[in-house]
Nucleic acid binder design. Sequence first.
RNA 1: GUGAUCGUAGCUCAGUUGGCAGAGCAUCGGGUUGUGGUCCCGAAGGUCGCGGGUUCGAGCCCCGUCGAUCACCCCA
Length: 430
Amino acid sequence: MSATKGYRGPKGTYDVYPGGGQGQEPHERPELWELVERVARDVFGRYNYSEVRLPVFEEAELFVRSSGETSDVVTKEMFLFTDKGGRELALRPEGTPGVVRAFVEHNLDRLAQPTKLWYMGPMFRHERQQKGRYRQHVQIGAEVLGSPDPLVDVEVISLLYAIHKSLGVKGEVVYLNNLGDFETRRRYVPELRGFLKKHEAHLDPDSRARLDKNPMRTFDSKSKETQELLDEAPLIGDFLSEDARGHLAAVEAGLDALGIPYKLDERLVRGLDYYTLTVFEAKSAALGAQDTVGAGGRYNGLVEQLGGPDLAGIGFGTGVERILLAAEAPEGGAGLDAYFITLVPEARLPALRLAGALRDAGLSCDLDYADRSAKGQFKGADRAGARFAVVIGDEELARGVCALRDMASGEQREVRISDGPQELLRAAGA
RNA sequence: GUGAUCGUAGCUCAGUUGGCAGAGCAUCGGGUUGUGGUCCCGAAGGUCGCGGGUUCGAGCCCCGUCGAUCACCCCA
């Protein structure tokens, strides 16, 4: 916050640093990130997904091709730059294009199908920041390539739901829709456009501008008048092909079987061009206007469009900052096993040696390096959440022992220093 | 990119009609020459976001700028 004296982080970014949570947003706390990573890794493992780690920048063209020339993400939110070889590059605004690119580049369709992948990493969008919206933010995502099976849709949605649930996201509702296949949209879009043209005078300016290029996005409008108008508009549900209708029904049956609560929302459209059939959005009532915690959908034409085989695909992305904002912050972290308190300079080397031995044995410990008073060092032990304080002073050195103090009970016993860490461990265990 | 509100100690915030920058918490030290989490005392910590203007005098008023928050646009 202060920053008169030096540099500040770039607009729309934030730092993760130790601070005991004081004045920090949850996503600024390192212990919460460790928790998220642990949980994500664990859940993905249980669903048999493999991790991919990809560059945070790609050829800009890749995003234009996949996300869509008219999408906001591409037209106004990309961080673009040219490298010294004249290549047009972009910091990735989302994860899916990179994953599909890597899938095609490495011929991952040779692996067992479908290919189930997950990632976690920063995404970049040049937009006005807000709480729960940052220019650099972290998404956890999954992509399943190579299967059109609606039960894969179910798995992906349940995966998203499981991650949120494991991390304590509050007030979550999953919205589901089906945007149809290409045939569906060929019939539906002209119908919708025709309807909107008739009422063009009553549309808000943004919706009017989208009329020709992407009329379905009109459903995203927050204008009251436009929304009232849309009550009369034709809905895509009535235009779904036989296949699309069956797909949606199968997804619903699967979600019901798993007991995942969802709401069908025929007005749900997504900002990216590549979606087909299933789209979904998980929102949390615990957030403000940026209430989407995670979202995704099926993209059956994308792999081929990016130069790969004609394979189906589906995936989601979920924002870690938003997960943490919408979650109950867990309290209490793991403390140290031992904290060494040295009362005379001659005690420092023996303490260092013992601490090293304990660390080698797998215990966590720390010592005072600030030459503090005994009282100060005990405070340090307390603040570090140490289970034991190991005290070495004049008297102990003279008798070749250290005092092992249980910080919770206050009980103290002596252990011979020459007995080494094993004896300390035994004494501590008692 | 548009609009509104805000910016004072590490954190949360007081600061009157413009008159010597404060509190609580946190930090460090002392009370207990070697024993923490309670209590008491003390210390340290600020170019009041930054730059300009008005004024004898600006944390306070005016302009600009940067940043944050909220709402749009859109999204995770």
